[in-house]
Amino acid sequence: MSSFRTVTMVTAVLLVVFAAVSGNRYYLDIFIFTCFYGTLAVCWNMMAGLTGLMSLGHALFVGLGAYSVAWGVSVHGWSPLVTWPMGMGLAVAAAFVIGMLCFRYGLRGYFFAIATLAFGEVAFFMVSATETLGRSDGMIMPISSTDIPGQLQFFEKWPYALIIMTILIGTIGVGEALMRSRTGYYWRALRDNEQAAEALGVNARAFKLRCFMLSAGISALCGAFYANYVAFVDPRSVLGVELSIQMLVYSIVGGMSLLWGPLVGAAVLVPFSILLRDYSAMPGGDIVVYAVLLAVLALLLPQGIAGWFVSKWRT
């Protein structure tokens, strides 16, 4: 499938779903969160599934984006035009530093995962202790009763849906283009056999860093969107290890060998868990169901739903 076709198909599906749910605020909200988690999972999997770098600290980058927006607007009244690039810049810089440190010492597999987890946890506790960032109570962003497009404040939900759809489609587009270029080939080669790839002229550290920084930048973009949409950030929702784990869950369930696999995982699990949460009498019932699903799928369907589907399609 050419990259153009993948992007067109994803766009078409998104538009159809958007058209179907746009009349209903509740369903539109589910759609927006599905796109949000879908984008995060796709960019997380660029590292994990396509380059072989499992990060358990991606919430750190989402948090940088979200807190940049929340702090910028509540303390200084800055526009998203300032805070979004600021959040992304901080995240890319953080990924650069963390990546330089980790790759220099050759951390991989479990060690890279746990190192990133530790960086994420440090950020979590530090923000929880910082007065100007609202400590563990979080920050409520100023909301006015009228729409302020310049501050991305809308009463209606559809403008948010359009923004996150654009981010998602952009991510898939950039990802698909990269996968067909030298970068994508190098990433997959590094995932499989770093030593062999290096012997064939691949600058392992540079290409891993590139992947990490891109993934972090997109995560921060999503975080910035989240802050503007929800108008409230706290450490648990945007910096917690649970958020990092969610990205892993959607990727495993959807399929890690394909760029758009994690999107399938999010599209199945996000609406499912929101509906289950809202309509089931059992608190935490949604997580029980998808924890079981995760463990079972990880063991029995290692290629994920999308991977399974594609392999069935080809044979």
């Binding site: 997959r188 080669a189 995932r191 499989d192 056999n193 030593q195 062999a196 790839a197 012997a199 060998s257």
Partner: peptide, 9 residues
């Protein structure tokens, strides 16, 4: 390399 491993997939 002595142990030949192609890139998977």
């Amino acid at each position: 390399f002595q142990l030949v491993k192609p890139f998977r997939g």
